[in-house]
Design a protein around this nucleic acid. Structure first.
Lengths: 195, 195
DNA sequence: GTCTATACGAAGATAGAC
DNA sequence: GTCTATCTTCGTATAGAC
């Protein structure tokens, strides 16, 4: 809301997203998130009265929105450009961090919610995945891909990117990301060939 | 090693793999793993003197070997059968657990190793991913797929399955897994068409 | 060789001082 | 309204009794 520098609340959310993408949900403590943002522990419970779940959900939505924004822009030049941009985002994140950073949404998706009711953070993760898929699928449809094929291919793209990022981190190579990009590129091209 | 019932050590490893696949690495405590296996906490440090890293690495290898064994068997009937079996394993795991269980190897892959040196558990995860890819790629090559294409397609299959499992857990639907299966099936069929 | 008891730190969360 | 101090629980790990 201020012109240039982020508010304490924003710094906490951004920091939480970063920690999630490095260490996973459980290893991301509110304590350290606050410290990293230069805020006292009590502040986090002032800004996020519902505790860790609420903060995590906001961090997931923040990260999801950033990727979606970039994807939307790239998709204006067509599905192939969108795919390239999408995969490049993930490749940059992985390589620039020396294989230490991955996807914060995935990190939240793989941890069992403690309570019976569905956690708000997991809900947020599902919505982010849906958004990414829908953006890709809509663009494919607009470029001549039949609806069902478009939805399937969009799901494959998102799933493969998520898996590839995690695998590349373990293997400390971009090999899987490169292979996935080659295969998906060919698929998207074929699916939009007739225009 | 005994005929039918598992040793305490084996029960600990199996339980650790299960907890990893539900809650992730950090939320899988040695304490609870021991309790779940009916063993005292001290025992785990007797069996796994190097602590949590060692136990985690063994759990990852255990889970990886189980999947690899099933995959190897299914691949005897060709790449399409192998793909079907591979995806069915993951679908069963996700659905039978009411979307609470995922892949323990992925869980280990996404958490930053604390020390500078590469953790033994992360190393184990990388090896499991490699094994799965290699099995699929070899089968594809044996059925006429050119080597580079076989390697790329195998990487896509493993990455997409990993991502799809995580996404399905968040969304509480098998939609992504279904979409991924349809797309990969067509790809594998096309890649082995000439036989 | 197995396990009880414990050390020590850090987690989530809150009460209540400023 | 912001933050300090603290409660309670749980984490890894170990010392040393059986």
């Amino acid at each position: 809301m201020s012109e240039n520098e982020l508010s304490a609340r924003e710094r906490i959310v951004v920091g939480a997203a970063d920690m999630l993408s490095r260490r996973g949900l459980n290893a991301t403590s509110i304590r350290e998130t606050a410290k990293h943002a230069g805020a006292p522990l009590g502040s986090t419970y002032h800004y996020f009265p519902d505790g860790k779940g609420q903060l995590t959900a906001e961090a997931v939505r923040y990260a999801g929105d950033r990727v979606a924004k970039g994807l939307r822009r790239a998709l204006r030049q067509g599905p192939e450009a969108g795919l390239r941009a999408y995969l490049n985002v993930w490749r940059s994140i992985v390589v620039d961090s020396d294989y230490r950073v991955g996807c914060p949404v995935l990190a939240v998706a793989i941890e069992e919610p403690e309570a019976e009711e569905r956690s708000v953070a997991l809900q947020a993760a599902a919505e982010v995945f849906d958004t990414w898929q829908d953006l890709l699928a809509a663009s494919l449809r607009e470029h001549g891909t039949p609806p069902e094929q478009a939805a399937q291919l969009a799901a494959l793209v998102v799933a493969a990117a998520e898996g590839a990022v995690a695998m590349c981190r373990a293997q400390r190579t971009t090999a899987v990301l490169d292979a996935v990009e080659a295969q998906l590129n060919a698929l998207v091209r074929a699916a939009t060939e007739g225009r």
